[in-house]
Design a protein around this nucleic acid. Structure first.
Length: 554
RNA sequence: GCGCCUGUAGCUCAGAUGGAUAGAGCAACGGACUUCUAAUCCGUAGGUCGGGGGUUCGAAUCCCUCCAGGCGCGCCA
């Protein structure tokens, strides 16, 4: 609809120029929007105001010239007026909405999709939690955001790959091994001092116990280093399996699990260091190797190989990101916890040094989650190993509620996740508010099937009966959906879908309480059933982008 | 000290690309089920958009500055 009006405006201004009514054929950026106030028409444009400076004519005069030259060949406009400082307000004929309503069933589950990706290969990397402990709520938020962003991009024509980067190398894996081995020794009756820098959680004991069951005391016969290595690998594998399970029960499936260790094994980290050394981008200072990130805006250069010969995470991160581009991704999106924001400049610098464009890399920062129970903060201490895991949360509040709530805030904002609220099946908990729409419509459709009328498609004359303010409000809401999806994809902001769905749900519930669908009036009933099915489709489409189910009954 | 994020109704938050009288939910108050699911709806009340400057026809939105809160500033991960 907006495109249509835009076309009419451009045409009108052009012919106004041909007739000498305006001085310039130029078009500044102008917008067509749905006014907040319904008395300002169905659509409104600021074209006259933004053109005033170029035309050197008053906005109202420009507006008049434009209106006079509008050629509404399709007959969608009822009337147009000029208001305020020079807004052009369009009032549409009620029938005009129908052609747009028809798009919903025509496109079905594809309704709302705008092809902005054009098959471009894009990768979204998210969660990527170290396999040293269970996933917690913060990871849950990252998972919900990353998965939804992937869904949205994929829906908009991108060829999306979802990837999880496993930090299965380096010191923290060694620490994991040490932690497990110490608990293992404890189980065998040895008195050990358990250091603060080891992982404190009970799951470490569980893993040690499993190794006990499997190996008995055999590990003690080996050199410590070997035993620790064994514990590390065993524990990491186990924890990783658990994380996979948790994510699956959260409805999140990755296309690839990428091992950091693999980058070392294949020599890719060494290759990167070697080639940048030759180009003096990596240089030696104080016995360490440094990457020149300063030339690309970082505040200082960063170490890639320490003076003890060990590589830093940054080294493998560089190799990892190059590997992504080598695999043909035109764009790479990383979803990170906001506490990692300081890494953006150095990773960006490394990517640019590698000959890629800055725009090919984008980070979605997700702010932290604070967990509450009935308004009271839940104590979370990773050090003491006391925390509520993602698994606990899914078990307690359910997958749908958890995912939906994670997406009810902009990622830029911290999120309060209240377990009691999330469990409640009331209006406080918007997930049910939205799902209830789907269930209610399914119920109506079931009823109509019993009456034997659901299969008949109404003709245009019948659809014109959808003319109450509630009908029009619903249809307008649905016409808006593709724009919401688009902005959500362009800005990588899934919460826009969430808020839209809540708004659409509100329109539906208002409709439901005011208008009856199944009546004795057959054409009207058919038309309204048609409308209801469209609403159901849009709700289902939106929920699927969020990774939330659309139940047929509740 | 520097960088990033945040500051909008009592509470939790929307308001991308500057638009007309700043919105929603919760909480408060008053109403609506012999009807397709009341997990619902309707109404009332509630505001110095953190403060102060600036840009312009027009600012919650852009710029500067100050204030408050969170996070980050390692040859840690």
């Amino acid at each position: 609809m907006k495109q249509l009006l835009e076309h009419l405006i451009i045409q009108a201004l052009t012919s106004a120029h041909e007739n000498g009514l305006v001085t310039s054929p130029a078009f500044p950026d102008f917008v067509i929007e749905v006014p907040k106030n319904i008395s300002h028409g169905d659509y409104s444009s600021n074209i006259a105001m933004v053109s005033a400076a170029i035309q050197k004519i008053s906005p109202r005069k420009i507006a008049e010239s434009i209106i006079r030259h509008i050629q509404d060949t399709q007959g969608v406009i009822d009337h147009v007026d000029i208001a305020g400082p020079g807004f052009i307000n369009f009032y549409l004929r009620p029938e005009s909405w129908i052609r747009f309503l028809k798009r919903v069933p025509e496109l079905g589950s594809r309704y709302g999709s705008e092809n902005i990706g054009n098959g471009k290969k894009i990768q979204v990397e998210f969660v990527s939690s170290n396999p040293t402990g269970p996933l917690h709520v913060g990871h849950g938020r990252g998972a919900a955001v990353g998965d939804s962003v992937s869904n949205i991009l994929s829906f908009c024509g991108y060829d999306v790959q979802k990837e999880y980067y496993i930090n299965d190398s380096g010191r923290q894996i060694n620490t994991l091994g040490r932690s497990v081995f110490l608990r293992y020794q404890e189980l065998l009756g040895e008195s050990v001092r358990f250091p603060d820098d080891c992982y404190q959680g009970d799951y470490i004991r569980d893993i040690a116990g499993r190794i006990m069951d499997m190996k008995g005391p055999d590990l003690l016969d080996q050199p410590d280093e070997k035993a620790v290595m064994f514990c590390a690998r065993y524990a990491a594998d186990l924890i990783l399996e658990d994380m996979k399970q948790d994510l699956e029960s959260f409805g999140v499936f990755f296309d690839r699990w990428f091992s950091e260790q693999g980058l070392y094994d294949s020599g890719k980290v060494a290759d990167v260091i070697e080639s940048f050394r030759n180009r003096n981008i990596i240089y030696e200072k104080d016995g360490a190797l440094w990457f020149d990130t300063t030339s690309h805006g970082d505040e200082k250069d960063r170490v890639v190989v320490r003076n003890n010969g060990q590589t830093t995470y940054f080294a493998s991160d560089i190799a990892y990101h190059y590997d992504k581009y080598d695999r043909g991704f035109e764009k790479v999106i990383d979803v990170w916890g906001a506490d990692h924001h300081g890494y953006i400049p150095r990773v960006t610098a490394a990517i640019v040094s590698g000959g890629y464009r800055k725009e090919q890399f984008q980070v979605v920062l997700v702010q932290l989650v604070s967990l509450l129970r009935a308004g009271i903060p839940v104590a979370m201490s990773t050090r003491a190993g006391e925390f509520v895991t993602l698994r606990d949360v899914i078990q307690e509040v359910g997958r749908d509620a958890a995912r939906f709530i994670f997406l009810t805030r902009s990622s830029d904002n911290t999120l309060e996740f209240d377990l009691e609220l999330a469990k409640q099946k009331t209006n406080d908990n918007p997930v049910y508010y939205v799902q209830y729409v789907h269930a209610r419509i399914c119920s109506i459709v079931r009823k109509s099937t019993e009456m034997g009328i659901s299969v008949i498609v109404p003709d245009d004359a019948a659809l014109c009966l959808l003319n109450t303010p509630e009908d029009i409000a619903l249809i307008k809401m649905m016409i808006k959906y593709p724009e919401i999806v688009r902005s959500s994809a362009e800005l990588l902001e899934p919460h826009r879908i969430t808020f839209y769905l809540m708004e659409l749900a509100a329109s539906f519930h208002a409709y439901y309480n005011r208008q009856r669908v199944l009546t004795d009036d057959i054409p009207l009933t058919l038309a309204r059933l048609y409308l209801m099915k469209a609403v159901r489709q849009v709700i289902a489409n939106g929920l699927s982008l969020l990774g939330v189910s659309a139940p047929e009954s509740m």
